[in-house]
């Protein structure tokens, strides 16, 4: 405490990198892009938020991100729970297995989905065999959500696991001993205590789903635009920097809003029962 000055000095290099390499470029692209100024960006943002073609893109992005987050939570939390309660010599191997998809290149992984979901792929053939006609999941919102869930599930598992592994398993036993069914013990003790990890997972998955580019580009194509793919075409196709900045601004606000919300939820969770 008495040597606060030197301690603060330790922060300087990290802060400098953060400001120069992250905050400055972000602020520059968001507020004053290469051929625009804050006023143009503001005008473009207004246009984006009132354009009947672009509003559905925002809505779709939110819908896809929320669905992806919800599915990851529903699938990932139980997996993390089982791994955290497995015998120690299994936990490590199971965890490695769960995060294995992270080691694969996104493009490779996504092409896998194209093969599976395409009209001649597994889904198409099963659909045909069942007499459902030509089932085409590729280039739909469903395809994007499927791809994103696969992409981000490991993040949810890891975040939830880190909370669950710290939890004293005796707490769950105590609840059971006091007459709680396994479901009740999970709802009232295991889950509330692991909420911080689950919320971190949700924030990461949501932010990832909003900003992911390869997966929605390959699985949604130009038919199912999301903000990220829209941003790409603004920059690389129409070369309209101020419009691109407007899209980026909306995405940034979305992600910040969700992470603020999860911070609030975490606080509420830790102060009330």
């Amino acid at each position: 405490m008495t040597r606060r000055g030197p301690m603060l000095a330790l922060l300087v290099p990290g802060l400098a990198v953060l400001v120069l390499a992250f905050l400055y470029p972000v602020a520059a692209t968001l507020l004053a892009p290469p051929d625009g100024d804050p006023a143009t960006v503001a005008r473009e943002t207004g246009a984006l938020l009132s354009d009947p073609y672009l509003l559905p893109v925002i809505a779709r992005t939110i819908r896809v991100a929320v669905l992806t987050t919800a599915i990851c939570l529903l699938l990932g939390f139980p997996v993390a729970y089982l791994i955290s309660r497995a015998p120690a010599r299994w936990a490590g191997r199971l965890l490695a297995l769960a995060v294995f998809p992270l080691m694969l290149n996104t493009v490779v992984r996504t092409y896998g989905w194209i093969v599976v979901l395409g009209g001649n792929g597994l889904v198409g053939q099963v659909g045909a065999a069942l007499g459902l006609g030509r089932v085409q999941l590729l280039y739909t919102e469903t395809a994007i959500v499927l791809g994103l869930v696969q992409l981000f599930l490991p993040l949810m598992i890891l975040s939830a696991y880190s909370s669950l592994a710290q939890q004293d398993p005796r707490l769950e036993e105590a609840a059971r001993g006091l007459g709680a069914s396994p479901g009740r013990a999970f709802r009232q003790v295991v889950f509330p205590l692991a909420l911080p990890g689950a919320l971190v997972g949700c924030t990461l998955v949501f932010a990832g789903a909003v900003t992911a580019f390869t997966t929605p580009q390959l699985l949604g194509g130009s038919r199912e635009r999301l903000l990220s793919t829209l941003l790409y075409s603004r920059v690389n196709v129409s070369l309209d920097w101020p419009a691109a900045s407007a899209v980026a601004l909306v995405m940034t606000v979305l992600v910040l809003a969700v992470s603020a919300l999860s911070g609030r939820l975490g606080k509420i969770g830790s102060t009330t029962s």
Partner: peptide, 21 residues
């Protein structure tokens, strides 16, 4: 199962629910 045994257990680590009063 434990919830049907009507047994009161006091753990060495107390195991109180930290999020409840």
């Amino acid at each position: 199962p434990p919830e049907k045994r009507n047994i009161g257990m006091v753990f060495q680590s107390y195991a109180l629910f930290p999020h409840m009063t």
